[in-house]
Design a protein around this nucleic acid. Sequence first.
DNA 1: GTGAAAGCGCTAACAC
DNA 2: GTGTTAGCGCTTTCAC
Lengths: 339, 339
Amino acid sequence: MTNADSGRGTASVTMRDVAKAAGVSVATVSHVVNDKPGARIGDDARKRVQDAVEALHYRPNALAKTLSQGSSRFIGLVADAIATTPFAGQIIHGAQDEAWKHGYVLLVANTDGNAAAENDAIAMMLEHQVRGILYSTWYHREIEVPPALANTDTVLVDCFADGSGLPSVVPDEELGGRTATRELVDAGHRRIAFINTTTPSPAQSGRLAGYLAALDEAGIDRDDALVLSAAPDQEGGYASLDAVLASGATAVFCHNDRVAMGLYDGLRERGLRIPDDIAVVGFDNQDIIAAHLRPPLSTVELPHYELGAAGVRLLLGIDTRPASLVSRVACPPVRRHSI
Amino acid sequence: MTNADSGRGTASVTMRDVAKAAGVSVATVSHVVNDKPGARIGDDARKRVQDAVEALHYRPNALAKTLSQGSSRFIGLVADAIATTPFAGQIIHGAQDEAWKHGYVLLVANTDGNAAAENDAIAMMLEHQVRGILYSTWYHREIEVPPALANTDTVLVDCFADGSGLPSVVPDEELGGRTATRELVDAGHRRIAFINTTTPSPAQSGRLAGYLAALDEAGIDRDDALVLSAAPDQEGGYASLDAVLASGATAVFCHNDRVAMGLYDGLRERGLRIPDDIAVVGFDNQDIIAAHLRPPLSTVELPHYELGAAGVRLLLGIDTRPASLVSRVACPPVRRHSI
DNA sequence: GTGAAAGCGCTAACAC
DNA sequence: GTGTTAGCGCTTTCAC
């Protein structure tokens, strides 16, 4: 039901049209439309303008406004993989909500980790006069900053680049590992296994450090036999079963929820009950998995939404820049029924 | 390492600067920068301009260009839930890739299904002169078209609104159900159960119709005892175990992958083997689940990426508008090891 | 071949 | 209180 007015967008009715209809000048229209603070506009004129705006369905042209003001309300978000997991979606969601809250809109681009696409995406965002760029990855890691990002206000989200001088916001892996482990300790466990990933990463080292710290804190002796390693997915968790059992652990902290899911399978096949025979805690809080395992998995949340939100706050200078270039955000515990 | 040039974006160097540096007029610069077809520019002038562009790191202002040309290169995507599942992410991904391919950029907004947010989002997109709007939902359903969408070029993605006159692109649920069932039939099964969802939806009716059609096609008698219903998640699948077993089915088509996951749990607890004792096929192809169940789940894919891509093609008028307002895209089979 | 100038829709001085 | 006017960075028509 495209009516005549449509066609190429709802083009056409401009401020000048409103001015003419209201019998005032465009300046006056501009003032009332933007509700300018110090603008002294007569009540009648104001009303006539408002009526005309209504009648004509006037809609300001944000692009023209940007052009004349010089500063845009765009924030660019370039992601390496927006669809692989819900993770990137959560970053986008957080960034979008926060941007919105401050009157900004989000421009998104996916690069599939491809350098050329990345450059194009960044160039395009710059051409659109973005206020700044959020460069994000779908899992926490160190990156090389794309050269195109030089001379641009950018913040790294879920990644970092030492020596780049760019601010970055990432999950606090160590604190997360500590939190997960502590949940187990608090439930009375003393022999706690940790299935770490085989992949070197901030998650690998951070979560291990957290695990160890929690043990120390609780006065529990470290035992190398309790730290296992496996591929960070279901298969890895399933494959760890024997080692877990052999370790004599009464509880296990899994590198992530997928590992926990695999472990669940193995445990079930052996007729072992969670949490009665063995307690399990995951990491990530991948909702589709964690909330629906049997029993629902206790875990620790990777705060992607918050990462995105904090990223725009940093970019906009709303959060006072922390002393350190990298802001770490906590991974809160999500208590379900596997402990 | 923010250098002086930075500050508020990489502002400043305009076409005029380039013109001055190259000793030509802005018109000439415009012509060479845009490689205008019919523009007769001397080789030397062209070169001088190109050099100046390089030297000054000139970057065109896309907003100004839009303003003077009248037509923008933005496409808006409003989603009701971008972070719940990877689904919306895939729609965004597909839309972004396709938009990009045609020189458009994606503006995204999340509304959390909230009508006010929806209106704001749409208004904001219109103010930014989007070429059109993609209105998407994260699961296939009928919607009420937000009034703000009137007089706008919009296409509905993964949803539809009868009588709205708006074009829409959705998954072909029936064909998908048929495909899933046929995979089972082709493997030799004759007693095939279908665990449908309890939630009325296009998926509920479509997949059932497809299941029935596949049976008919194969000359297998329908048997009401074989069509079960359950909540569309792991819990539902697990709870269906007894009914499935009682039905005497040798294979089961689950309404979605999550149901299949729950069923797997039940089957495993009973010591039943997949696919030897019973074959299972899912729907959705939720990667995190389907690819990593034991055994990996055969399923049928919900083509979200393609939905997003097809949506922009429709919007841009690249795909010739199909006769019917609703385009259905196929759900291809994904063969793994549960059949 | 190249340049001058008008204009896209809006804002912001500044005049009246 | 309200209007005039000069841009914002770019495209485009039309002279030269």
